[in-house]
């Protein structure tokens, strides 16, 4: 059973207050490789490692089925700073 974008999105939205979410299927449709950008106030005060561990734990079953999973996690404030920098 390949992982699909909708399942990922539902799992994330159920678990975190979502400010902004991008899910990109980088596998050309086979569901083996995803990259996500998640902005949530739930990340406030957490180190990057802790944020990633939260996501890894939440999507444990899904990630185990993929070949590759990449994530960027921001608090709303960090995301603003990130956008400003990449402009």
């Amino acid at each position: 059973m390949p992982v699909n974008t909708n399942d990922l999105e539902a799992a994330i939205r159920n678990a975190f207050p979502v400010d902004h979410l991008e899910i990109t299927d980088q596998s050309s449709g086979c569901g083996e490789s995803y990259s996500i950008v998640l902005v949530s106030e739930a990340f406030e005060g957490l180190s990057t490692l802790k944020k990633h561990r939260l996501i890894n734990e939440l999507l444990k079953a899904e990630i185990a089925q993929m070949h590759a999973f990449s994530q960027k996690t921001f608090t709303p404030i960090q995301y603003q700073a990130h956008l400003a920098k990449s402009r």
Partner: peptide, 25 residues
């Protein structure tokens, strides 16, 4: 490591992270 993906980096015995984290750092 309780970490689902490879690569994984340790520095002096401490888990640092995988690719996303290393690039971010």
């Amino acid at each position: 490591s309780e970490w689902p993906t490879i690569p994984q980096v340790y520095v002096n015995g401490e888990f640092v992270g995988g690719c996303d984290i290393l690039l971010g750092m």
